[in-house]
Design a protein around this nucleic acid. Structure first.
Length: 552
RNA sequence: GGUCCCAUCGUCUAGUGGUUAGGACACCGGCCUCUCACGCCGGGAACAGGGGUUCAAGUCCCCUUGGGAUCACCA
């Protein structure tokens, strides 16, 4: 079979466009195309291109594989593999979410694995923080820390024996070798090159590549990268990605202290844990070829890869702590709901027609890789706030009990001891479409929990002034005679205002400030009912005093 | 610099050759109104540029430009 270059290019495109079709066909194993979707070619550029033919005969090449595939593998095993950094990054949370959605939506498994091979960066606390973030978001895992599972341990630092075995195998097969060059030596060479030619890019010169003796002195282990050909794979999001092998150098897979590096540990674990879909940030797309080389060298099936476009700051650079909240814990601490956060995250790089608001069940049902976009995006605080708010507004998204519990937490934070859940419950309907977060909700309810409202100076100055004192007195007189019911109060006040010809505003605003200490609040009569007759009347009286004394 | 990737309103996006280019956030008007919100109605706002292919291109191809990622004994 031969193709013109145009044909080949077109075929590659077809591959890319088919990515969704393969995945969304539930009758097939989700990764039906996996075995044919990658190839390491060592025959030069032309051979590399030819591998484009592989994804096409879906019914051909993968047939044998399908027959041999255990039924259980028809559903995906997706992992999230964070490194413990002290908090769950919002971008990492999105990767976790997409992975989790795919696993849950397809009836597969979601595996959590901690990549703590870098001892300097990990600690018990930082692992706990990541786990906390996952738990708060409700991204539960079937295998991993705390829950265990048949493929444990789920901490890379506890799997060193395994990496050692595979490294030995790689060396025995001639795919890896010991390198005795020290970091200091290499750095010196790097410097020397830089001095000679500032623009030159240093590459490991292959000093130990063909060394025949293997003395037992400190060394790293390097993977022997093929010097020609191309490595390519079919990404679930990006389609076919093809890289020349000579763009790689013999990369280190084991450090002198015996600890594996990311690429090795990742490949060994993903294989040993039976992972079928590797989803991660697009910043990993560059070492995917290296990993595929290792899969091939070890004779293993290559999983599907799904690289996610990056979540950037509003300015377009890397989203870091400097740009407000990057840890999911921050969102919890600011009083948002996990579902609201998840909803925003889901819509970031993924879409489902014009729908903006989703329940987590809908997310599971609708999610698929072919609806994931390719372009990086900028985090938008305001859009996030809106999505989060939408979740707070709708009782079907945030139930009354959850709302009350969330608000109580923040009332306590404001210093109120065991605030009344009953009062919050009764006030709920008046704050649902006002509070942007539970923290905000607690602020809105603040004045109910104090003996005296905290008086806003501006509001007081503007409305509690001598001119309004008589209006407030009239108001007091009218409501004092009423049964304490919102409708009755409203009618009484409205009628009185109509009779006397006083502007409603001149009554309502001073009354509001007297009752709440603020110039903005939920409806006056609702507030009065929740406050109770006694407290309402005394606050109005107090307001009258303030008004009389103001300016005089 | 090499390699890889990306490109529709300010932002998140719909769009798979034929659309008045749709939605959401934000913004600007208006309505509602005891304030603030909510809600409702309306408005401005985008296919980076240039070549092809085609009867027809935001959609396919190429180039340019712009942006990003990555080139570690980090992950």
């Amino acid at each position: 079979m031969s193709f013109s270059s145009v044909d080949l290019v077109n075929m590659g495109r077809d591959c890319a466009r088919d990515r969704g079709a393969v995945c969304s066909n539930r009758a097939l194993p989700a990764q039906a195309s996996a075995p044919g979707s990658h190839r390491v070619s060592r025959a030069g550029p032309a051979g590399g291109f030819l591998s484009c033919e592989i994804p096409l005969p879906v019914a051909g090449f993968p047939l044998l594989w399908r027959v041999l595939t255990p039924l259980a593998m028809a559903t995906p095993r997706v992992r999230f593999a964070p490194s413990p950094s002290g908090y769950l990054h919002i971008g990492g949370a999105r990767t976790a979410l997409f992975s989790w959605l795919w696993a849950r939506g397809q009836g597969g498994q979601f595996i959590l694995r901690v990549e703590d091979t870098d001892q300097e960066r990990s600690s018990v606390d930082s692992v706990a923080a990541v786990l906390d973030g996952m738990k708060w978001l409700g991204l539960d895992w079937d295998e991993g820390p705390e829950v265990g599972g048949p493929n444990g341990p789920y901490f890379q630092s506890e799997r060193r024996v395994l990496y050692r075995e595979k490294t030995d195998e790689l060396i025995a097969k001639g795919h890896a070798y010991r390198c005795y060059c020290t970091k200091a030596e290499l750095d010196a060479q790097r410097e020397a090159l830089k001095a000679k030619d500032p623009k030159a890019k240093f590459r490991y010169p292959g000093t130990c590549r063909d060394r025949s003796d293997t003395p037992d002195i400190p060394h790293v282990v390097r993977f022997k990268v093929p010097s020609s050909g191309r490595t390519e794979f079919k990404d679930l999001v990006f389609g076919v990605v093809s890289t020349p092998n000579d763009a790689q150098q013999d990369f280190v897979i084991v450090r002198p202290d015996g600890f594996p590096l990311y690429n090795l540990a990742c490949v060994v674990d993903d294989h040993e844990m039976g992972i079928t879909v590797v989803a991660r940030g697009k910043d990993h797309i560059g070492n995917t070829p290296q990993q595929i080389m290792m899969y091939e060298a070890l004779g293993w099936d290559v999983p599907d890869f799904a690289h996610l476009p990056l979540m950037l700051s509003s300015k377009g650079d890397k989203l870091s702590k400097r740009h407000a909240a990057v840890g999911v814990q921050d969102y919890r601490d600011r009083g948002f709901t996990p579902d609201g956060v998840l909803n925003y995250l889901a819509r970031f790089g993924w879409s489902y027609g014009d729908q903006e608001i989703f329940t987590r069940e809908e997310l599971q049902k609708y999610f698929s890789w072919d609806r994931v976009g390719k372009a990086d995006g900028k985090f938008d605080e305001r859009k996030f706030a809106d999505v989060a708010f939408e979740h707070l507004k709708r009782p079907e998204l945030t139930g009354d009990d959850a709302y009350i519990a969330g608000t109580l937490r923040f009332l306590e934070k404001r210093g109120f001891e065991s605030p009344s859940a009953d009062l919050v419950a009764r006030a709920l309907s008046t704050i649902r479409d006002r509070a942007k977060s539970f923290e905000d909700a607690a602020w809105h309810l603040d004045f109910y929990f104090r003996d005296e409202p905290e008086m806003d100076a501006k509001a007081s100055k503007k409305f509690l002034k001598p001119d309004n004192a008589q209006h407030l007195e009239g108001f007091h007189e009218i409501v004092a005679d009423c049964d304490w019911d919102a409708e009755i109060l409203e009618k009484a006040v409205t009628d009185w205002v109509a009779e006397t010809g006083v502007k409603m505003k001149l009554v309502a605003q001073p009354a509001r400030v007297a009752l709440t200490g603020r110039s903005a609040s939920p409806g006056l009569y609702d507030v009065m009912v929740l406050l109770g007759k006694e407290r309402s009347l005394s606050r109005v009286l107090a307001g009258i005093e303030i008004a009389k004394q103001a300016g005089g």
